[in-house]
Design a protein around this nucleic acid. Structure first.
Lengths: 100, 100
DNA sequence: TAGCGACTTGGCTAATTATGCAAGTAGCAA
DNA sequence: TTGCTACTTGCATAATTAGCCAAGTCGCTA
C-alpha cells in the first residue's frame, strides 16, 4: 500500500467509522425522516445529552450531517442521503450470513 | 431506542465497523478484483501476517468474506459485492464535504 | 442584567481495538 | 518423520473510543 493509498483509505475509513456505532446508526435513521434537535434525539436515545452531542459532532465532522442553530436549539439533518443505501447492503450481508 | 432496536443497530454496526479501517478497506478493494491468499495480501499491505490474518477474520466473521483452504494457502474472496457501493457513497460525502 | 434552558467541551475512567512477537496447527515434500 | 511454508491464535502493550459528571457558552425572557 503506497503512502497515497493509505491516506485515501484513512479518509474513507474515517467516514465509515462515523457510522459504525449503534447510536449513530439510530441517529442517521431518525434524521432520514427529517431534521431533529439535540434534545429530541436525546429523549429518543436514552443517554445523556453530552454523549449525544459528541455522536452528532462526529457525524458532522465526517461530513454526514449539517447543523443549524435556531434560537437555543441546534437542529441536525442528513447531508448526503446515499448513506441510507448502506442499510440495504448491510441487510443483504446479514441475510447471506444467516443463510450460510 | 427500544431493546429490539438496539439489538438491530448493534448487529448493523458490527458489519459497518468491520469496514471501518484503512487496511480492511484496502483488502475489500483488492478482493473486488478477485480472490487473494493471505500471503499475497500481506505482501501488498506491508504489515505482519498475523495482523492481516486478524483483519481477514474480522471481515469474515461479519459475513463480508468467505475463505477456502487450498493446500497450505487460504484464499479469501468477497461474499457480498454491494459493499463496493459504499465507496461511491463515501466519495460523494467527501466531495460534498470538501465543497462546503 | 439575572436567570434558565439548550447545547458543547473538559477531564476522567472503563472498555475496546490494533499490533507485534512468540508459539501452535496443518499441509506438503524431501 | 523431519522440516518448511502458510496460516492462526495467545499474550502483552499501546492507542483509540465511549460514557459520565461538571463546567462553560449562548440565546432568550423576565
Amino acid at each position: 500500500m503506497t503512502a497515497a493509498e493509505l491516506t485515501r483509505y484513512k479518509a474513507q475509513a474515517r467516514i465509515i467509522k462515523a457510522l459504525a456505532h449503534p447510536t449513530r446508526l439510530f441517529i442517521v435513521d431518525e434524521l432520514s425522516r427529517g431534521e431533529r434537535c439535540v434534545c429530541e434525539l436525546t429523549d429518543l436515545i436514552g443517554v445523556e445529552m453530552p454523549t449525544v452531542s459528541r455522536h452528532l459532532s462526529q457525524l458532522k465532522n465526517a461530513g454526514l450531517l449539517e447543523d443549524e442553530k435556531r434560537g437555543a436549539q441546534v437542529f441536525y439533518r442528513l447531508r448526503v442521503p446515499c448513506v441510507l443505501n448502506f442499510f440495504k447492503c448491510v441487510q443483504a450481508v446479514q441475510m447471506a450470513h444467516d443463510a450460510e
